[in-house]
Design a protein around this nucleic acid. Structure first.
Lengths: 144, 144
DNA sequence: TGCTATACGTACCAAAAGGTGAGAAATGAC
DNA sequence: GTCATTTCTCACCTTTTGGTACGTATAGCA
């Protein structure tokens, strides 16, 4: 996280996340739907996806190399792959400007913004409980 | 998801998630902390961790084989590995009963519960936007 | 005297994920 | 003419991940 949370999540994002949390869940769940949801969770719960989501939420529209420079440790291959996947899932738009050298802009869609907002609580949790987790690990590793 | 969300997240969980969302974020972030948070996110944003978290939140205390039976597709090895990792991170407790045959109970700690609550918004998002994502994929795959 | 049940550890192997480096395509700067 | 620029794709290789199968300990039961 390069900026405080308020830079990345505005009042609307937080309001939407709260609406999600307050909302009535569906009464019964089709096992077929269940499988698809687990599948979807498996897809979006990916390190690079999460980091790109966060970055684009914070910075808005960015081009390929700019993203690469700002996400520490990502290889070009992973960047291309993750962006393509997110585009396929409808999380971001990819705009190719037919100029030379090529210029491609990436930006979150409303769907991408809503996912980012949904993850807001997880980021906050991670920030708040970082030390607790570190301490738990130290304790675990210490006992024999 | 085998049960509606209200089965897994009670009013307290949701209230806590809302408190997270409403809360003031820290003003500035140490790059060292940033690295650790990204690291932590990478660790918990794992398919099996998420599914175990969900299951234990829903069912409470469970023993090893019971978990294995209820999480579709997990191998014994992955189950052991994921449980051990979660225990190390302080997300769950492992209680060995010295009986024969052995009996080991797993249950979430308050920290585990809070993480589960933090993921509440993501589950809701996945449920609500499943069809949107599927449609986006179909559209993406269709255009040559 | 086997046989079963439970919760693993471990060794070996296959599959998947990911890194690296080359190349492609077109144009403006030198 | 050639060099850099940008956004990739592709092929090759290494690393990581995960599956399978087998071993272990021990009390109760037939």
């Amino acid at each position: 996280m390069t900026k405080p949370l308020e830079t990345r999540f505005d009042a609307d994002d937080i309001a939407q996340a709260e609406r999600y949390l307050a909302e009535e869940p569906p009464a019964e769940i089709d096992p077929r739907v269940e499988r698809l949801v687990n599948d979807l969770i498996g897809r979006i719960a990916d390190k690079w996806t999460l980091l790109l989501l966060e970055l684009l939420e914070e910075k808005g529209t960015l081009r390929f190399t700019a993203i690469g420079r700002q996400v520490d440790g990502i290889s070009q291959k992973m960047l291309t792959q993750t962006l393509r996947q997110m585009e396929r899932d409808g999380l971001l738009t990819r705009t190719v400007h037919p100029v030379v050298p090529p210029r491609v802009d990436y930006a979150l869609t409303p769907l991408g913004n809503s996912l980012s907002a949904a993850f807001c609580g997880v980021w906050v949790w991670a920030e708040r409980n970082l030390e607790t987790v570190e301490a738990a690990r130290a304790r675990f590793d210490a006992r024999d």
